[in-house]
Amino acid sequence: MQGISIILIIFTSLFFTGILIRTKSFFSGRKGPGVFQPLKDIWRLLKKGAVTSETTSFIFQIAPSIYFATVFLSALLVPFGDQPGLISFSGDFVFFAYLLALGKFFTIISALDTGSSFEGMGASREGLFSMLAEPAFFILIGSLSLLTGHTSFHQIFSTLYMGMGSHVEQAVVALAALVLVAIAMIENSRMPIDDPKTHLELTMMHEVIILDNSGFDLGMILYTTNLKFAMYGALIADLFLSPSIPIYLAIPFMLFIQVVFAISAGTIESFMARFRMSHNPQFIFVLTSISLLIFLGALLLLGKIT
C-alpha cells in the first residue's frame, strides 16, 4: 500500500490546475475551459519537438528533465495518512526540501543560461523568494518533529493531525496548515507573490524564466508545476488526516481536501491583487515569524514554557 500516496498525487495533478482555473473563471463570470483542459494543453506540448536557442548550452536542455525528476522524487517521499511514501527514512524532510531546491536551482541556471536579461531578473526574484520561504518550511517541519518526537514525514504526519489533543495543538496544526498553503503558493509561483496571468516581462517571475522553453520541455515544466501543487496539497491533507480513518474513507477525504485547496487557491487568485514586488519579501518573512510562533507553541505543548 506504500504506492498509494504517489498514485493519488499523480491522479490529483491531472485535474488540480483545471479546478483552479475553473474557480477563477467562475468568479470572473466566465464559463471557462474544462477541468482537463490544462492537461490537454500539456499533452499537445509533449507531442511537439523542442526548439532551443543557439546561445544556450546543455544546461538549458537538461534543466526541465531535472526539474521534473526532483519534484517527482520528492513526491515519492510524501506519505498518505498512516501509509508511508515509497521512500521514507528519518530526516527525509531535509531531503525533500533540498530536492526541491535542486530543481529550483536548475530552473534558475537554465534561465541564466539563455542570456536574456528578463530571465535573469525573474530568476533572481524566484531565487530570493524561495530562499526566504526555506527557513519558514524548516522551522515549521522542525517544530512539528519536535512536537511529535519523530524525524520522518511519515511518522510526523501519522502522529500529528487536526482534531487531536488540546486546543493549543489544534491551533498549532491550523497555523501549520496556513503556513504550508502560503509556502505552496510561493513555491508554485501563484497569486499573492506571483501572477501567472501577467503579460509583462517586467512583472513576471516564474513565467519569465520559462519563456525560452518550448514544446516537450515546456510541457514537462507545466506538468511539474501541477505535480508540485498536488504534492503540497497532499502534505496539507496529511495534516488533517487522522490515521484511524479507514483507507476507503481516507482516499475521498484526501481528494476532497485537494479540491478544497485548489478552490481556495483559485479564490485567493480571484480576489487578491498581486503584492507589490517590494512587499513580497516581508510577506514571506512573516511566514518565518509565524513558523517561529508555531515553534513556541510546540515548546508550550512540550511543557518547556509553563
Binding site: 486546543h167 493549543v168 491551533a171 509565524i290 510562533l293 507553541g297 508550550l300
Partner: peptide, 9 residues
C-alpha cells in the same frame, strides 16, 4: 495560549 499567540501574530 491560542489567544496570546494570536496577539503575537
Amino acid at each position: 495560549a491560542i489567544l496570546l499567540i494570536l496577539f503575537l501574530i
